[in-house]
Nucleic acid binder design. Structure first.
Lengths: 337, 337
DNA sequence: ACCGATATGAAAATATCTTCCACCCGTGAG
DNA sequence: CTCACGGGTGGAAGATATTTTCATATCGGT
C-alpha cells in the first residue's frame, strides 16, 4: 500500500494551447479589429518580458489603452487582484478597452494577462527575498522568530549532513544492526535525543534502552560486553554523566559510539566511532541546546534508518506491529484516509 | 488593496460562562455547515507557501480533494492553465470539489488559487530548484540516506514555518508568558517533544511540567484553572491519552493549546489555539514520527523563544543560572574557545 | 446489517469575460 | 464653417467560467 501518491503524475506536461486549432474551449482566434492580418501576435510574453513589452508597445497604443498598460506595468500585483471590470474602473476606461489592451500585449484575453500578472508579481516578490539571517533579538516579532528559527535549523541540518563522516556512520550502523543489545546515554537536552533513539530502535525490535540516570547508566554499562553497543550523546563532549558510562562500556569490550559536537572532547577517547554534530552559532535567545538537538536528531535518524535497512526482515514487521498495538489509543473519528 | 478577505473569524467561544456545562463543549469554529461565510482558513498562502500548505493540509482532505491537491502541487504551471472544469476533468472530480479544495487551501475560490498557481509556476521557473526528493529505499547507501534525510527534514521545517499561523502562535505565547503554570501533554514520540518544551521553560524560570503518564496528566489537569496553560502535542490529533487531559484542562478554564498535524482532529475541539505542524509524506522506512517530530520541535522552539522574549527580565538570569548550575557536571579539559 | 453522517457530482445560479455595436470625437475636404 | 469619415471608446448583450445548491452515493460506526 505504502502511499497512494503514485496515482497523480499527470503527464501531458506542457499543455499549452499554442497551436491555433488546438484550443478546446473557444475559437477565440478571430481578430476583432477588421484590420487584415493580426499576425497572431508574437509569442505571448512570459511574465518577465511583460514590463518590457508594455514599454515597447506603449507608443502604438491609444490613450485609453496606455492608461491600462501603465497601471499594469506599475502595479502588477495589485492589478492581478482585479477583475476586468475592476481594472477598467481603476483606469477610468471600459472592460472592452482592457481586453483590447490584453490582446495587444499578446494574450488571448484579459484572463490570461491576469495570470501572467500574478506570475510577474510573484517573481518580483521572491526576487526581493530578504533572507532573514540575523540573530534573534528580544523584540523580534513572532513572524520573524519563526522564519529565523526555521532557517537556522535548516542550516544546521545542511551543515550536519555535510560534516558527517559516512564511514563512521557505516561502521556504527553495522555494529548496531548486529548488536545483542544497545544502551544509549544522554542527559539534559541530549537525554531526549537519547530517548528518541532508543524508542525508535525498540519499534524495530532491537533491544535498546536509554539511560538518563547516571548511576543506572553505569550500572547497566557494567553488564555490557563484546557484541553490545553503547551510544553516548553529548554536545559538549565533556558531560561526565555520559562519559562515565561510555567509558565503562568501552572497558567492558562493547562497541562504543559517540555523538558529539566536539570530536576532540573527552568522550571521543572512549568511542570506537565518533559521529560529529554541527555546532551552529548560538545567541542568548537561542541556546546551543536548540541547534545541537536538531543536529543530533539527524544523526540519530540516520543511524536508525541504517539499522532498519540492515535488519529489514525483522524491522518491517516489528514496525507495523507497534503501530497496530497503539491503534486503539486513538479516537476513532478522523475522516478519510 | 484592503485585504478585503473575510478575515473576520472571531471565534472565542465564551467557554463555560457560568460553569453549567460539564459536557463536550460545542466544537469551536463549527460554523462551516449551512449558509454564511466559509471563512475558515486563516492566512491565505502566497504562492511560495502554497506547496507547503498543500502538503500540510493533505491528510485532512477527502480523497477527491487530495487528488486535486496532488495535481496542483505536482504541476502548478499546468494547472494554472486550466479552468475549474478543466482541472476537475483532469483530476476526475467535479468543479465543486475543485472549489472546495481551493477553499481549504485558504483561497476564496478557484480563481484565486489559480492566480497563486500562476505565481508559483513563475517562481519555480525562475528559481529552478532541483529538488532531489526521492524516497529512501532499503538499499540506499548510507551517504544517500544522510542526504535524503537532511533534505526531507529541511523541507519539513520550511513547510512548517510557512504553514504556521503566526496569530495563533502569538496568542499561545501571550498566554504562556503570563501563565501561573504550564502543563504539557504528549506520549510516544510527541512525549519527547513535550519534555523538550517543559525542560526549556523550566530553564527560564517558568513553572512547567511534562506529563506522559495519562493518569497523572489528568490528575494534574484537574488542578488547573484560569490563568494556567495546557499544551497538548499529538501528531494525529486523536491520541486519547493526550486529548483527555487537555479536555479536562479546558473544562477547568485553563487556556489550552494544541500542537498537531491535524487541525481538524478531535484535539482541536478543546484547544483555544491550534498550531499546525506539517505532515510530510512518509514511507515505510521513514515513519511519520520522524518528520512530525522535526515539525513539532520547531513549533515548540518558537513558543519557547516567544515566551523568553516576553519574560526577558526574568528569563535571561534564569537561563544563565541553569547553565551555571550544570557547569560542574562537565569535565574541565576542553582547550581553547 | 442498519443508521447517521459525510463526501461527491450534476445542475442551477452567479460572476466574469468577451464580443458586438452604436456613439463620440477629431480630422480633413468641400 | 460645415459635413462626412474613420477610428477610439464604452455600454450592454452574449458567451464562459465560477460558485452554490441539492440530491445521491459512500463511508464508518453501532
Amino acid at each position: 500500500m505504502s502511499s497512494d501518491l503514485k496515482e497523480n503524475f499527470a503527464f501531458r506536461p506542457g499543455r499549452r494551447p499554442a497551436g491555433p486549432g488546438t484550443q478546446p474551449p473557444a475559437p477565440r482566434a478571430a481578430a476583432e479589429a477588421g484590420a487584415g492580418a493580426p499576425a497572431r501576435n508574437t509569442n505571448r510574453p512570459g511574465p518577465t518580458a511583460l514590463a518590457a513589452k508594455v514599454r515597447t508597445m506603449a507608443p502604438s497604443m491609444t490613450r485609453s489603452m496606455q492608461r491600462v498598460a501603465e497601471a499594469v506595468a506599475s502595479d502588477p500585483a495589485g492589478c492581478a487582484q482585479l477583475t476586468v471590470t475592476g481594472l477598467a474602473e481603476r483606469t477610468g476606461t471600459s472592460e472592452a478597452t482592457v481586453v483590447r489592451t490584453s490582446r495587444l500585449l499578446g494574450y488571448p484575453g484579459y484572463r490570461d494577462l491576469r495570470l501572467a500578472l500574478a506570475g510577474l508579481a510573484a517573481q518580483q516578490e521572491s526576487g526581493a527575498a530578504p533572507a532573514v539571517t540575523a540573530d534573534i533579538v528580544v523584540d523580534d516579532p513572532i513572524a520573524d522568530v519563526v522564519a529565523k528559527l526555521a532557517l537556522d535549523e535548516q542550516q544546521t541540518l545542511a551543515d550536519t549532513a555535510a560534516g558527517l563522516d559516512v564511514a563512521q556512520v557505516e561502521a556504527a550502523v553495522a555494529a548496531m544492526a548486529t548488536a545483542r543489545r544497545i544502551d544509549v546515554y544522554g542527559v539534559g537536552a541530549s537525554g531526549l535525543v537519547s530517548q528518541d533513539l532508543a524508542q525508535k530502535l525498540l519499534r524495530i525490535g532491537m533491544v535498546a534502552h536509554s539511560h538518563a540516570d547516571p548511576h543506572l547508566a553505569v550500572t547497566n554499562a557494567v553488564q555490557l560486553r563484546a557484541g553490545d553497543v553503547a551510544v553516548a550523546i553529548t554536545h559538549s563532549g565533556r558531560t561526565v554523566d555520559v562519559i562515565e558510562p561510555l567509558r565503562v562500556a568501552f572497558d567492558q569490550g562493547a562497541t562504543t559510539i559517540a555523538i558529539t559536537g566536539r570530536p576532540d572532547g573527552e568522550v571521543a577517547q572512549y568511542a570506537d566511532h565518533v559521529l560529529t554534530t554541527s555546532t551552529a552559532r548560538e545567541s542568548e535567545l537561542r541556546p546551543a541546546a536548540m541547534s545541537s538537538r536538531t543536529s543530533q536528531l539527524l544523526v540519530v535518524d540516520c543511524l536508525f534508518i541504517g539499522v532498519a535497512q540492515r535488519t529489514y526482515e525483522t524491522a518491517a514487521p516489528a514496525l507495523s506491529a507497534s503501530y497496530e498495538a497503539l491503534a486503539h489509543r486513538h479516537s476513532p473519528r478522523p475522516r478519510t484516509r
